[in-house]
Amino acid sequence: MLRKSLVVNPKDSVAMVLENASKGDRIQTPRGEITLLEDVEFAHKVAIVDIEEKEPIYKYGEEIGFAKTAIPKGTWIHGHNTGCDRGTQKR
């Protein structure tokens, strides 16, 4: 089933789903159609490109964190696979 989603900035590597979506559902993105590899709740994020381990994750055109493991497109992006140390090392 095609689900509503939103990519905020052309640089982004994630889309936000705008309705509860299930594994196998699809979303349309500027990077092409993506098939969800797992269930994703409203307002949560999905990788729209393959992201390598330690690679930055972009939303709003900015780095919101980095991949703790390799994240294939269609994967739910959240705390289990996303690290964040932005700003903390600059003190």
Binding site: I64, I77, H78, T82
Partner: peptide
């Protein structure tokens, strides 16, 4: 986090 925000940066942005 429940609402879909993953990191403090995402919230701040």
């Amino acid at each position: 986090f429940t609402g879909g925000v993953t990191t403090i940066v995402e919230k701040a942005l």
